[in-house]
Simulated scan of single mutants.
Amino acid sequence: MDISHFSERINQTLSTLTYGENPTELYAPIRYMMELGGKRVRPLLTVLGAYLFQDNVDKVLLPAIGVEVFHNFTLMHDDIMDGAPLRRGKQTVHEKWNTSTAILSGDVMLVKAYELFLGIEPDKLPQALKLFSNCAAQVCEGQQLDMNFEQRQDVQIEEYLLMIKLKTAVLLGFALELGALLNDASPADAQHLKEFGINMGIAFQLRDDLLDVYGDQAKFGKRVGGDIVSDKKTYLLLTALERASATQKLALEKWQGVNGSDEVDGKVQAIKELYDELDIQNLTQNQINHYFQKGLHHLNEVNALNSKKELLRLMAIQLIERDS
Protein backbone atom coordinates (compact mmCIF):
# COMPACT_ATOMS: atom_id res chain seq x y z
CA MET A 1 0.00 0.00 0.00
CA ASP A 2 1.38 3.43 -0.89
CA ILE A 3 0.31 7.04 -0.33
CA SER A 4 -1.28 7.34 -3.79
CA HIS A 5 -3.81 4.64 -2.88
CA PHE A 6 -5.07 6.70 0.06
CA SER A 7 -4.99 9.95 -1.95
CA GLU A 8 -7.20 8.31 -4.56
CA ARG A 9 -9.71 7.21 -1.94
CA ILE A 10 -9.86 10.73 -0.53
CA ASN A 11 -10.42 12.23 -3.97
CA GLN A 12 -13.12 9.67 -4.73
CA THR A 13 -14.90 10.54 -1.49
CA LEU A 14 -14.57 14.27 -2.19
CA SER A 15 -16.13 13.80 -5.63
CA THR A 16 -19.29 12.34 -4.05
CA LEU A 17 -19.78 15.20 -1.62
CA THR A 18 -22.74 17.58 -1.99
CA TYR A 19 -23.00 20.93 -0.25
CA GLY A 20 -26.46 22.22 -1.18
CA GLU A 21 -28.12 23.82 -4.21
CA ASN A 22 -30.22 26.86 -3.38
CA PRO A 23 -29.55 29.72 -3.20
CA THR A 24 -26.93 29.13 -5.89
CA GLU A 25 -24.95 32.15 -4.72
CA LEU A 26 -24.41 30.47 -1.34
CA TYR A 27 -23.31 27.03 -2.52
CA ALA A 28 -21.51 27.70 -5.82
CA PRO A 29 -18.58 29.41 -4.03
CA ILE A 30 -18.15 26.34 -1.79
CA ARG A 31 -17.94 24.00 -4.77
CA TYR A 32 -15.57 26.43 -6.47
CA MET A 33 -13.30 26.60 -3.42
CA MET A 34 -13.23 22.83 -2.93
CA GLU A 35 -12.46 22.26 -6.62
CA LEU A 36 -9.41 24.56 -6.60
CA GLY A 37 -7.40 21.54 -5.57
CA GLY A 38 -4.47 21.60 -3.20
CA LYS A 39 -2.34 18.83 -1.74
CA ARG A 40 -5.12 17.40 0.49
CA VAL A 41 -2.46 17.00 3.17
CA ARG A 42 -4.79 17.11 6.16
CA PRO A 43 -7.31 14.41 5.16
CA LEU A 44 -4.41 12.25 4.04
CA LEU A 45 -2.85 12.59 7.48
CA THR A 46 -6.15 11.55 9.10
CA VAL A 47 -6.40 8.45 6.92
CA LEU A 48 -2.73 7.50 7.36
CA GLY A 49 -3.03 8.08 11.11
CA ALA A 50 -5.95 5.65 11.18
CA TYR A 51 -4.17 3.12 8.94
CA LEU A 52 -1.37 2.77 11.49
CA PHE A 53 -3.76 0.95 13.82
CA GLN A 54 -6.22 -0.83 11.49
CA ASP A 55 -6.09 -1.65 7.79
CA ASN A 56 -9.71 -0.64 7.24
CA VAL A 57 -10.02 3.14 6.94
CA ASP A 58 -13.57 3.34 5.52
CA LYS A 59 -15.11 4.93 8.61
CA VAL A 60 -12.40 7.60 8.67
CA LEU A 61 -12.95 8.97 5.16
CA LEU A 62 -15.85 11.34 5.81
CA PRO A 63 -14.37 12.83 9.01
CA ALA A 64 -11.09 13.23 7.10
CA ILE A 65 -12.98 15.19 4.44
CA GLY A 66 -14.49 17.24 7.27
CA VAL A 67 -10.96 18.31 8.22
CA GLU A 68 -10.33 19.37 4.61
CA VAL A 69 -13.59 21.33 4.39
CA PHE A 70 -12.68 23.12 7.62
CA HIS A 71 -9.21 23.91 6.25
CA ASN A 72 -10.71 25.42 3.10
CA PHE A 73 -13.17 27.42 5.20
CA THR A 74 -10.20 29.00 7.03
CA LEU A 75 -8.52 29.77 3.69
CA MET A 76 -11.67 31.44 2.35
CA HIS A 77 -11.91 33.72 5.37
CA ASP A 78 -8.13 34.30 5.51
CA ASP A 79 -8.23 35.50 1.91
CA ILE A 80 -10.83 38.10 2.86
CA MET A 81 -8.75 39.33 5.80
CA ASP A 82 -5.59 39.43 3.69
CA GLY A 83 -7.29 41.04 0.69
CA ALA A 84 -5.77 38.27 -1.43
CA PRO A 85 -6.74 38.35 -5.13
CA LEU A 86 -5.60 34.81 -5.94
CA ARG A 87 -5.75 31.34 -4.38
CA ARG A 88 -3.92 28.51 -6.15
CA GLY A 89 -3.64 30.67 -9.25
CA LYS A 90 -7.39 31.40 -9.46
CA GLN A 91 -9.56 34.26 -8.26
CA THR A 92 -10.36 34.13 -4.57
CA VAL A 93 -14.02 33.70 -3.66
CA HIS A 94 -14.46 37.27 -2.42
CA GLU A 95 -13.01 38.56 -5.70
CA LYS A 96 -15.08 36.28 -7.92
CA TRP A 97 -18.31 36.93 -5.98
CA ASN A 98 -18.11 39.47 -3.14
CA THR A 99 -16.99 39.70 0.48
CA SER A 100 -20.41 39.13 2.03
CA THR A 101 -20.96 35.99 -0.04
CA ALA A 102 -17.49 34.69 0.86
CA ILE A 103 -18.18 35.20 4.58
CA LEU A 104 -21.53 33.43 4.43
CA SER A 105 -20.33 30.56 2.22
CA GLY A 106 -17.40 30.09 4.58
CA ASP A 107 -19.81 29.89 7.51
CA VAL A 108 -21.70 27.10 5.74
CA MET A 109 -18.42 25.26 5.17
CA LEU A 110 -17.76 25.28 8.90
CA VAL A 111 -21.24 23.87 9.49
CA LYS A 112 -20.59 21.21 6.82
CA ALA A 113 -17.32 20.25 8.48
CA TYR A 114 -19.18 19.48 11.71
CA GLU A 115 -21.84 17.57 9.75
CA LEU A 116 -19.14 15.32 8.27
CA PHE A 117 -18.16 14.29 11.80
CA LEU A 118 -21.63 13.05 12.69
CA GLY A 119 -21.03 9.57 11.33
CA ILE A 120 -18.32 8.94 13.91
CA GLU A 121 -19.16 6.08 16.29
CA PRO A 122 -21.28 7.39 19.18
CA ASP A 123 -18.75 6.42 21.85
CA LYS A 124 -16.01 8.43 20.09
CA LEU A 125 -18.06 11.38 18.80
CA PRO A 126 -17.98 13.62 21.92
CA GLN A 127 -14.19 13.40 22.20
CA ALA A 128 -13.71 13.94 18.46
CA LEU A 129 -15.92 17.06 18.51
CA LYS A 130 -14.20 18.40 21.62
CA LEU A 131 -10.76 17.97 20.04
CA PHE A 132 -11.96 19.53 16.78
CA SER A 133 -13.55 22.53 18.51
CA ASN A 134 -10.39 23.14 20.52
CA CYS A 135 -8.26 22.91 17.38
CA ALA A 136 -10.58 25.26 15.45
CA ALA A 137 -10.36 27.87 18.21
CA GLN A 138 -6.55 27.62 18.21
CA VAL A 139 -6.46 28.17 14.44
CA CYS A 140 -8.47 31.37 14.95
CA GLU A 141 -6.11 32.43 17.75
CA GLY A 142 -3.18 31.97 15.38
CA GLN A 143 -4.85 34.05 12.68
CA GLN A 144 -5.53 36.84 15.16
CA LEU A 145 -1.90 36.82 16.31
CA ASP A 146 -0.79 36.99 12.67
CA MET A 147 -2.97 40.07 12.17
CA ASN A 148 -1.71 41.60 15.44
CA PHE A 149 1.87 41.20 14.25
CA GLU A 150 1.14 43.43 11.25
CA GLN A 151 0.78 46.36 13.65
CA ARG A 152 3.76 45.53 15.87
CA GLN A 153 7.46 46.18 15.39
CA ASP A 154 8.63 44.20 18.42
CA VAL A 155 7.57 40.66 17.45
CA GLN A 156 9.92 38.04 18.88
CA ILE A 157 10.95 34.78 17.21
CA GLU A 158 9.27 32.68 19.90
CA GLU A 159 6.02 34.59 19.37
CA TYR A 160 6.22 33.91 15.65
CA LEU A 161 6.81 30.19 16.23
CA LEU A 162 3.78 30.08 18.53
CA MET A 163 1.68 31.86 15.90
CA ILE A 164 2.54 29.38 13.12
CA LYS A 165 1.99 26.50 15.54
CA LEU A 166 -1.56 27.72 16.18
CA LYS A 167 -2.42 28.95 12.69
CA THR A 168 -0.95 26.05 10.71
CA ALA A 169 0.52 23.22 12.75
CA VAL A 170 -2.21 22.32 15.24
CA LEU A 171 -4.56 21.33 12.41
CA LEU A 172 -2.00 18.84 11.08
CA GLY A 173 -1.63 17.49 14.61
CA PHE A 174 -5.40 17.20 15.03
CA ALA A 175 -5.77 15.46 11.66
CA LEU A 176 -3.43 12.69 12.80
CA GLU A 177 -4.89 12.51 16.30
CA LEU A 178 -8.40 12.15 14.84
CA GLY A 179 -7.37 9.20 12.64
CA ALA A 180 -5.71 7.54 15.62
CA LEU A 181 -8.78 8.05 17.83
CA LEU A 182 -11.21 6.66 15.24
CA ASN A 183 -9.18 3.47 14.75
CA ASP A 184 -8.71 2.73 18.46
CA ALA A 185 -5.14 3.93 19.12
CA SER A 186 -4.05 4.22 22.72
CA PRO A 187 -4.09 7.75 24.20
CA ALA A 188 -0.26 7.70 24.29
CA ASP A 189 0.00 6.79 20.61
CA ALA A 190 -2.59 9.42 19.65
CA GLN A 191 -0.61 12.05 21.57
CA HIS A 192 2.66 11.08 19.89
CA LEU A 193 0.99 11.35 16.49
CA LYS A 194 -0.42 14.74 17.39
CA GLU A 195 3.05 15.97 18.40
CA PHE A 196 4.51 14.52 15.20
CA GLY A 197 1.96 16.50 13.19
CA ILE A 198 2.52 19.74 15.08
CA ASN A 199 6.28 19.61 14.63
CA MET A 200 5.91 18.77 10.95
CA GLY A 201 3.47 21.65 10.60
CA ILE A 202 5.96 24.13 12.04
CA ALA A 203 8.68 22.76 9.74
CA PHE A 204 6.21 22.99 6.82
CA GLN A 205 5.52 26.68 7.45
CA LEU A 206 9.21 27.49 7.92
CA ARG A 207 9.85 25.79 4.56
CA ASP A 208 7.16 28.03 3.07
CA ASP A 209 8.91 31.10 4.53
CA LEU A 210 12.19 29.93 3.01
CA LEU A 211 10.70 29.21 -0.42
CA ASP A 212 9.15 32.67 -0.50
CA VAL A 213 12.66 34.14 -0.58
CA TYR A 214 14.80 31.41 -2.12
CA GLY A 215 12.30 29.40 -4.17
CA ASP A 216 12.25 28.94 -7.93
CA GLN A 217 9.59 31.31 -9.29
CA ALA A 218 8.50 28.79 -11.95
CA LYS A 219 7.92 26.06 -9.34
CA PHE A 220 6.77 28.12 -6.37
CA GLY A 221 3.56 29.23 -8.07
CA LYS A 222 3.53 32.78 -6.69
CA ARG A 223 5.84 35.75 -6.61
CA VAL A 224 9.16 34.97 -4.93
CA GLY A 225 9.83 37.71 -2.39
CA GLY A 226 6.16 38.39 -1.69
CA ASP A 227 6.73 38.25 2.08
CA ILE A 228 9.55 40.79 1.75
CA VAL A 229 7.43 43.14 -0.34
CA SER A 230 4.57 43.03 2.19
CA ASP A 231 6.93 43.37 5.20
CA LYS A 232 5.62 40.09 6.61
CA LYS A 233 7.30 39.22 9.88
CA THR A 234 8.58 35.78 8.98
CA TYR A 235 11.17 33.67 10.75
CA LEU A 236 13.73 34.92 8.23
CA LEU A 237 13.11 38.61 8.88
CA LEU A 238 12.90 38.24 12.66
CA THR A 239 16.12 36.20 12.76
CA ALA A 240 17.86 38.76 10.56
CA LEU A 241 16.77 41.62 12.84
CA GLU A 242 17.97 39.69 15.88
CA ARG A 243 21.41 38.93 14.39
CA ALA A 244 22.01 42.15 12.45
CA SER A 245 24.66 44.68 13.31
CA ALA A 246 23.48 48.24 13.88
CA THR A 247 24.25 49.10 10.25
CA GLN A 248 22.52 46.00 8.89
CA LYS A 249 19.50 46.62 11.09
CA LEU A 250 19.20 50.16 9.77
CA ALA A 251 19.38 48.82 6.22
CA LEU A 252 16.60 46.30 6.95
CA GLU A 253 14.42 48.91 8.61
CA LYS A 254 14.96 51.40 5.76
CA TRP A 255 13.06 49.11 3.40
CA GLN A 256 10.03 48.66 5.66
CA GLY A 257 6.98 50.25 4.08
CA VAL A 258 8.62 50.57 0.66
CA ASN A 259 6.20 48.95 -1.78
CA GLY A 260 6.03 51.13 -4.88
CA SER A 261 5.84 49.15 -8.12
CA ASP A 262 9.17 50.59 -9.30
CA GLU A 263 10.91 49.85 -5.99
CA VAL A 264 9.90 46.32 -4.99
CA ASP A 265 12.47 44.48 -7.11
CA GLY A 266 15.25 46.51 -5.55
CA LYS A 267 13.78 45.92 -2.10
CA VAL A 268 13.66 42.14 -2.57
CA GLN A 269 17.22 42.05 -3.89
CA ALA A 270 18.61 44.27 -1.12
CA ILE A 271 16.99 42.33 1.72
CA LYS A 272 17.95 39.01 0.16
CA GLU A 273 21.58 40.20 0.09
CA LEU A 274 21.34 41.10 3.78
CA TYR A 275 19.90 37.66 4.50
CA ASP A 276 22.87 36.12 2.68
CA GLU A 277 25.31 38.18 4.75
CA LEU A 278 23.63 36.93 7.92
CA ASP A 279 23.42 33.27 6.75
CA ILE A 280 19.64 33.32 7.19
CA GLN A 281 18.99 30.55 4.65
CA ASN A 282 21.12 28.05 6.57
CA LEU A 283 19.79 29.16 9.94
CA THR A 284 16.23 28.65 8.75
CA GLN A 285 17.07 25.25 7.27
CA ASN A 286 18.63 24.25 10.60
CA GLN A 287 15.38 25.19 12.35
CA ILE A 288 13.37 23.15 9.81
CA ASN A 289 15.64 20.17 10.48
CA HIS A 290 15.21 20.64 14.24
CA TYR A 291 11.43 20.38 14.05
CA PHE A 292 11.63 17.54 11.54
CA GLN A 293 13.82 15.47 13.86
CA LYS A 294 11.65 16.35 16.86
CA GLY A 295 8.60 15.16 14.92
CA LEU A 296 10.29 11.93 13.85
CA HIS A 297 11.11 11.17 17.47
CA HIS A 298 7.38 11.20 18.27
CA LEU A 299 6.57 9.06 15.22
CA ASN A 300 9.19 6.53 16.27
CA GLU A 301 7.48 6.23 19.67
CA VAL A 302 4.15 5.20 18.12
CA ASN A 303 3.35 1.52 18.65
CA ALA A 304 2.61 0.50 15.05
CA LEU A 305 4.24 -1.39 12.19
CA ASN A 306 7.34 0.34 10.84
CA SER A 307 6.14 -0.29 7.29
CA LYS A 308 3.02 1.78 8.03
CA LYS A 309 4.93 4.51 9.86
CA GLU A 310 7.22 4.75 6.85
CA LEU A 311 4.32 6.20 4.82
CA LEU A 312 4.07 9.10 7.25
CA ARG A 313 7.83 9.56 7.33
CA LEU A 314 7.93 9.75 3.53
CA MET A 315 5.05 12.22 3.50
CA ALA A 316 6.86 14.40 6.04
CA ILE A 317 9.98 14.40 3.89
CA GLN A 318 7.93 15.44 0.86
CA LEU A 319 6.40 18.32 2.81
CA ILE A 320 9.65 19.80 4.09
CA GLU A 321 11.69 19.21 0.94
CA ARG A 322 9.03 20.52 -1.45
CA ASP A 323 9.89 23.32 -3.88
CA SER A 324 6.35 24.57 -4.43
Rank of each mutant, 00 (worst) to 15 (best):
R152A: 08
D123W: 11
L176M: 15
R42S: 01
R9V: 06
T46L: 04
L182W: 02
I30D: 04
L116M: 15
D276S: 11
V108G: 02
A64V: 06
K222A: 08
F196G: 04
T16N: 10
T74L: 02
K272G: 07
S230V: 11
K194C: 07
L26Q: 05
I271N: 05
L52K: 02
I317F: 11
L52Y: 01
V155K: 07
L319A: 08
D231W: 04
L14A: 07
L52W: 01
M34Q: 14
L36T: 13
L181H: 06
V47N: 03
G225T: 04
A28D: 14
L237D: 10
L44K: 02
Q143R: 00
Q205F: 00
A175D: 03
L171Y: 07
D208R: 08
Q12L: 03
N11S: 12
Q293R: 12
L193P: 02
L278I: 03
H94L: 01
L104P: 02
I10R: 01
R207G: 11
S15N: 09
T18M: 05
A169P: 04
E301S: 09
A316T: 07
L62P: 09
L236E: 05
L299R: 04
Y235R: 00
M200F: 03
Q318E: 15
S230Y: 09
D78T: 11
A28L: 13
K130N: 06
Q151K: 15
E277C: 13
S324G: 10
L238R: 09
E141V: 08
G260M: 02
N98G: 01
I280Q: 02
L182D: 07
Q318P: 03
A246I: 13
K309A: 05
K59V: 07
D58V: 05
G260P: 00
Q54P: 11
L52I: 04
H71K: 12
A316L: 00
D55M: 14
A137Q: 14
C135N: 10
C135V: 14
K112N: 08
E158H: 15
L236K: 10
Q144G: 09
N134V: 12
L283Q: 13
L118D: 12
N72I: 05
Q191E: 14
I317Y: 13
T99Q: 05
Q281W: 01
H94K: 05
G221N: 00
D231L: 05
T247P: 00
K96G: 03
S307P: 00
L193W: 03
R152W: 07
G173H: 04
V258L: 01
M76I: 10
N282E: 12
Q143T: 07
G119V: 06
R313D: 00
A244V: 10
D55H: 09
T74H: 03
Q91I: 10
Y27F: 15
Y19R: 01
L161F: 12
P126E: 04
L145S: 08
G295P: 06
M76R: 03
L278S: 06
Q285E: 14
Q156K: 15
G173D: 03
L61V: 10
L296T: 05
I271C: 04
Q318D: 15
L250H: 03
S186H: 12
T92D: 09
K194N: 14
V111N: 02
Q256H: 13
A175L: 06
D276W: 09
E321H: 10
A28G: 08
A251I: 05
I80H: 00
L210Y: 13
H77G: 00
E242M: 11
L274E: 08
M163S: 12
K254V: 14
M81Y: 06
H192M: 07
I320G: 02
S186V: 11
T18E: 14
L238F: 12
R322A: 03
